[in-house]
């Protein structure tokens, strides 16, 4: 029963923010592009459920659209990581012990050795701050995660009998990787993907907190926090709403990941880090 609780709570939290993000495409309580300085830093009330920020914008609307930014950046970044990492991992597993395998392995180590936030800062220093560059920076560091995971698990599947059968029927290793190995990895990848998704949301928040993510007027949770920092003694609610949004989204995704793991394979209970 405990298993389902993770899944249910996680799905509910994740769903809540996803729906908020989706609704924001159609409707938000207030237009956030129109500033209203006279109405700034109002505490929560019936007209502004989460209050207003330093420009008099409705924080609820900002958080809703911010969810869109966070989710989009994280989703694409993890997509890049998976899209590049999984094939690399499959290839390394298929050619185990070859030069290719060694190269991929050492390449992974090398990427891991780089301090990710610093490299992200360098990338934006080079190409300018934008949501796209945040995606690339986060995406790069997701590649070795998926490559390692895929290689490790694929290796154990290669040893199974049905692979031998496929070999005998004349399929080459690329075909086997795609047709037989990959489907067997799907649940594992979904679990890891969910977890990486939550990490990417945190990374996006950190990057936009230091001013490197999506640019204004597009709201982002990290930048809302950065903007609120000097006003925290005047209006703490400016820092609470976006901060809690990050916490609950990440929490939801982590619980969802744990839930998926329990559902797909109770034996896949590896220490989550």
């Amino acid at each position: 029963m405990k298993t389902n609780r993770n899944l249910v709570v996680g799905a509910a939290l994740t769903g809540f923010f996803t729906i908020a993000a989706l609704i924001s495409f159609l409707w938000v309580p207030y237009d956030i592009e129109a500033l209203n300085i006279a109405d700034r830093m109002k505490t929560p009330s019936f007209s502004h459920l989460l209050g207003t920020d330093h420009f008099g914008r409705d924080i609820l609307s900002m958080v809703m659209i911010g969810a869109r930014t966070s989710i989009a950046v994280a989703l694409v970044a993890v997509g890049i990581g998976m899209g590049l990492g999984v094939p690399l991992g499959l290839a390394a597993a298929a050619r185990k012990g070859s030069l290719l395998d060694e190269l991929i392995g050492r390449g992974n180590d090398l990427v891991f050795a780089f301090p990710s936030l610093l490299i992200a800062i360098l990338i934006t220093a080079t190409f300018g701050p934008s949501a796209l560059n945040a995606i690339i920076a986060i995406g790069i560091f997701n590649v070795p995660v998926f490559a390692r995971l895929t290689r490790g698990s694929a290796l154990s599947i290669w040893k199974r009998d049905f692979i031998l059968a496929a070999r005998v029927s004349g399929k080459n290793s690329a075909q086997i990787s795609v047709e037989h190995i990959l489907p067997n990895l799907s649940s594992l990848l979904i679990v890891q993907g969910t977890i990486q998704f939550s990490l990417a949301i945190l990374a996006e928040a950190a990057l936009s907190y230091v001013g490197l993510g999506a640019q204004p007027p597009t709201p982002s949770w990290g930048r809302m926090l950065a903007d609120s920092q000097t006003m925290i003694s005047l209006a703490p609610h400016l820092a609470l709403a976006p901060g809690l949004a990050i916490v609950f989204t990440v929490l939801g995704l982590n619980l969802l990941g744990d839930g998926f793991r329990d559902v797909f394979d109770p034996r896949l209970r590896r220490g989550r880090t």
Partner: peptide, 21 residues
């Protein structure tokens, strides 16, 4: 789970608010 989900810079901001300011 909550501890993993809290961005450390936000936590830092809150601590500054409470313990420093």
């Amino acid at each position: 789970q909550l501890g993993v989900a809290i961005p450390n810079f936000w936590f830092a901001m809150l601590m500054v608010l409470v313990f420093a300011i």
